[in-house]
Computed example of a mutant assay.
Amino acid sequence: MALQATVLRLMTITEAFCVGRLVELADLSSEANAASPRRAMLDDALMHASGSWQAMERAFKDWHSVKPSWSSLRGPTEVRNAVAHGLGALTHRQKLSRTATVSRINSVGAGVNEFDRIRLDPAIVTAIAEVCATFIRDLDARSFREF
């Protein structure tokens, strides 16, 4: 349980950094009036862009020409989704593309047992932490600007 909780926290931190940086890059301070139509459009676009990893990837690329290696997060994201939505086992959605899902999970050293439960150990969680930290550093370097 503690290993699963740690993966959830690591992915939450990574996601929060991504969303926070997207908001910073949108520079909402230029539109301080929260009731203005422009601000409403920005808020709506940011809500949509932060709804999934794929939407965030598109927003960074299309709005800011920022293109980190999102593929490194695919394995940790699958592990996180199994933990968060499948209580430690593959979800129905993950089972629909089982081969690809298991391949992504295996890419970070984790595994799936015969009951579709995720196998984790401390070394795998450490590897996921390093993937997350590397991604955050890369996104930070590619998207940093003085605010």
Rank of each mutant, 00 (worst) to 15 (best):
T99M: 07
F115T: 09
A2K: 11
F144W: 12
L87F: 14
E15I: 00
G88A: 05
F115N: 12
N81Q: 07
N33I: 02
T126F: 10
A45Y: 02
G20Q: 09
T14S: 01
S50P: 10
A26H: 05
L25W: 03
R39E: 03
N33D: 15
V125L: 04
M41V: 14
A100Q: 13
S71A: 13
D43S: 14
S72M: 05
V102M: 05
S103F: 03
T134C: 06
A100R: 15
R74P: 00
T91C: 06
I118R: 01
I136F: 03
K67R: 13
A129K: 07
H64M: 08
F147Q: 12
L28Y: 02
V23W: 13
L42S: 10
R117F: 15
P122M: 02
N33L: 07
W70K: 01
R21T: 06
T126Y: 11
F144P: 01
A133L: 09
F135R: 07
G88H: 06
L28T: 09
L22G: 04
L73H: 07
S107E: 05
D140K: 12
D116Y: 13
S29D: 13
S29V: 09
R58K: 09
S97D: 13
D62R: 08
R74M: 06
F60N: 04
S50M: 06
A110P: 02
V83N: 04
T91Y: 02
A129V: 01
T99Y: 04
M41H: 05
L28H: 05
W53V: 05
G86R: 09
R80Y: 09
A82H: 08
T14D: 03
A110T: 02
W63C: 14
S50K: 11
A2H: 04
W63A: 15
E31I: 00
E114N: 06
R74D: 07
E57N: 08
T77G: 00
R137G: 06
L73N: 05
V102F: 00
G109K: 10
A127K: 13
G20V: 08
A89T: 10
R80A: 03
H85R: 12
L8N: 14
T101Q: 03
S97E: 13
L87T: 11
I124L: 06
D116E: 15
E130D: 12
D27C: 01
V125I: 03
H92F: 02
F147K: 13
R117Y: 12
V83F: 02
L73W: 01
I136V: 14
A123S: 15
S36I: 01
A34P: 00
A2S: 04
M41A: 15
